[in-house]
């Protein structure tokens, strides 16, 4: 117990972040799984119903249960962010490993391509991909995923550059280990501490990117809900029914707060 208190005092970001992220994710997932309402079932009689026992946070402009929609939308957002970051991490690690380990021409070519991708604002780039692929949940994932690859590639490349001339890598080479084995068995685990914190921070950026894209109407399509989509719907009622926009906005804010604290804490911990 004393031990835990001490650790919390040493790194408060890590623990507060973990708790906030866990609680908000738990609420969203629980609501998504167990809510008795259909998130898309409309009911004209309950349009903008006030919070009550049957509708915890009231209803939206179509009389749909707001809590249920927030949970479903939140889970959609979290899922898109997770999938996006996974694409970014996996391909970023592969690109970073090859460029950092081999250097030379491979490095120059891939990294200049990387720089080109990084040079565009990520939303703009995602817009381009969307206009090529078309909109929809899975297309958003792929578009955002491609946009996320370069930043991870850069981080991983740095770690490989640092590690490739260390003595334990030389010693592995002397044992007769091949390049792929050295890259992915010997060096890769050493990039985890850095990779973990940037993954969490990247997750955050993905949540925001999804929200902005859906807000602009090019992400998740109605009637499916996502937090950005809902924020865009709520816009029209900002003055008449402000609680709709405020609740949606707060959900995004809490998710981002939790995961960015967690990311900062992990960075400090590494």
């Amino acid at each position: 117990m004393k031990d835990l208190m001490f650790r919390i005092r040493k790194n408060p970001e890590l623990y507060t972040g973990a708790v906030i992220a866990a609680v908000i994710s738990f609420i969203l997932i629980a609501g998504f799984l167990f809510s008795p309402y259909d998130p898309n079932a409309m009911s004209a009689a309950e349009k903008f119903a006030a919070p009550s026992v049957s509708h915890l946070l009231g209803c939206d402009n179509f009389g749909r249960d707001l809590f249920t929609r927030l949970c479903v939308g939140g889970v959609t957002t979290l899922f898109i962010a997770l999938a996006t970051v996974s694409i970014g991490v996996v391909f970023g690690t592969i690109v970073g490993a090859f460029t950092g380990y081999y250097g030379g021409a491979v490095d120059e070519v891939l990294m200049r391509f990387n720089d080109a991708v990084l040079a565009f604002p990520s939303i703009l780039l995602a817009l381009v991909f969307i206009s090529v692929f078309g909109s929809g949940t899975f297309k958003v994932i792929i578009s955002l995923g491609i946009v996320f690859v370069p930043s991870f590639a850069r981080i991983v490349r740095g770690e490989y550059l640092r590690c490739r001339n260390l003595d334990y890598v030389r010693s592995a080479r002397l044992m007769g280990a091949g390049d792929l084995r050295i890259m992915f068995v010997h060096i890769l685990p050493n990039t985890f501490p850095v990779l973990l914190s940037s993954t969490v921070i990247g997750f955050n950026n993905a949540v925001l990117a999804e929200a902005s894209m859906s807000f602009l109407g090019i992400g998740v399509q109605p009637p499916d809900s996502s937090l950005g989509r809902m924020l865009s719907d709520a816009q029209a009622f900002l003055f008449s029914e402000p609680s709709y926009a405020i609740l949606t906005g707060c959900t995004i804010a809490v998710i981002v707060l939790g995961f960015s604290l967690l990311g900062e804490g992990l960075k400090k911990h590494a």
């Binding site: 260390l166 030389r170 592995a172 280990a177 050493n190």
Partner: peptide, 29 residues
């Protein structure tokens, strides 16, 4: 092939692995 022992004992062992894994690696390869 001769083997090498390096100067810096902190750089010559992979910090992410356990001693047993490192020692058995040549046989795995």
């Amino acid at each position: 092939m001769p083997q090498m022992i390096f100067q810096d004992p902190y750089g010559s062992l992979n910090p992410a692995k356990r001693v047993g894994w490192i020692l058995t690696e040549p046989m795995r390869i």
